[in-house]
Every structure is written in structure tokens, then in C-alpha cells.
């Protein structure tokens, strides 16, 4: 990791991309790192576009918005088409496998995984897609230990849904093949 790891999470309102960004910021704080999380959304509660950001660093973070993401999550085609062109060449993009990666992206830097389908079929609840994504992203970059991530998730979910959400984390983790993980681990070590 350079001095800051800048993450951007995009999708449509209601998909929980803001919560996904909050969980990574929380995990960083639990671990004793610096983190800043922010978000942008339209006036609609659901259905509008949604963008959330999280910056993790060993040092103090001032400017709170992500300018040059190291990582982009896209859960909708609209979000992907909108944010992909702004990416620097070395950014890693995770997309739901139902989406088509635009030509501007280097296929080597695109990780296409069945986030939405796994949430629905393997976890059994479509609304856990964001937590599935969290599990997958964490595994891809080897960001946080399991207990830190679970603690971060626990702080932001309704009581009684821990088991469901931890299962979603595991399903997400399982979406990342070991060789894929090894590819990005070193360059993004925190």
C-alpha cells in the first residue's frame, strides 16, 4: 500500500455500498489505523446512484474524498460505466459478473465475481450482497484479520443478524481464488 489506500464503492441506492465503505473504515479504526469515510448520493433513498468512499492510512488523513482510487467496486452497469473511465491504470476493479467491463479497463485489473447471485443463492438473502462484497474485497487484498472484520460488521448490523452476515462474509471470501488473492496482496499490503 502507498501511504493511503483509497477505496470507492458504487451501485444503486439500497444496495448497501455506503455500509460496505463504513465497515472497512470501522475495521481500520478497530485495528488502530486512520480512516475516513464519506459518501455521495442523490435525493432518492432507493434506486438513485450511490457512491461511497473510504480512505485507510497509517498517518493522519485530511482531504476526505477519494481523488485517485486504488480500488473500485461496481454493483451496477451504470456505476461501472460512470466511474471506470476516471480510474488510473493500476486501480483494481471488482464488478458483479452480470456486468460488462468497459473497454477502457485493463482486463488484468478487473475481478469479476458473482456477488449478487451468491448473496441470493448461497447466503439465501439478496440484501447481503454488500457483505458478500466486503468478504470478497477483504480476501482479495488481505486487508483485515477475520476477527477484526467481524467486529466491524457487528457494529453496523441489527442484533440477531450476525450469523447471516458472517455467512455472507465467508461466501464472499470463497469467491476469491488463492492465485487471484496472491496477485494483489503484496502491492496493497497494509
Amino acid at each position: 500500500m502507498s501511504d493511503k489506500f483509497q477505496m470507492r464503492f458504487t451501485g444503486s441506492g439500497g444496495q448497501g455500498v455506503i455500509l460496505a465503505s463504513v465497515i472497512f473504515a470501522e475495521a481500520a479504526v478497530v485495528k488502530g489505523l486512520h480512516a475516513v469515510q464519506s459518501q455521495a448520493y442523490g435525493p432518492e433513498a432507493r434506486g438513485g446512484s450511490s457512491k461511497a468512499e473510504c480512505i485507510i492510512s497509517h498517518g493522519e488523513i485530511w482531504f476526505s474524498k477519494v481523488i485517485r482510487p486504488d480500488f473500485l467496486l461496481a454493483l451496477t452497469q451504470n456505476a461501472l460505466d460512470k466511474y471506470a473511465p476516471e480510474l488510473a491504470g493500476d486501480a483494481v476493479v471488482m464488478i458483479d459478473d452480470s456486468l460488462d467491463a468497459p473497454a477502457c479497463l485493463d482486463p488484468e485489473r478487473v475481478v469479476s465475481v458473482p456477488i449478487l447471485r451468491s448473496a441470493k443463492e448461497d447466503v439465501g438473502k439478496a440484501i447481503t450482497a454488500n457483505i458478500v462484497a466486503v468478504g470478497a474485497i477483504n480476501e482479495l487484498f488481505g486487508l483485515f484479520d477475520e476477527d477484526v472484520l467481524r467486529e466491524a460488521v457487528s457494529r453496523h448490523i441489527p442484533k440477531g443478524t450476525e450469523e447471516l452476515n458472517f455467512r455472507a462474509l465467508s461466501v464472499g471470501k470463497g469467491l476469491i481464488a488463492p492465485e487471484l488473492r496472491d496477485k494483489y496482496l503484496e502491492e496493497n499490503e497494509i
Binding site: A25, V36, S38, I61, S64
Partner: peptide, 9 residues
């Protein structure tokens, strides 16, 4: 809004 909506440790 910058400070109101921002989360930090």
C-alpha cells in the same frame, strides 16, 4: 456537509 457526513476514527 463535508464534516457532517464524514466518518473518522
Amino acid at each position: 456537509e463535508i464534516v457532517g457526513h464524514m466518518r473518522e476514527g
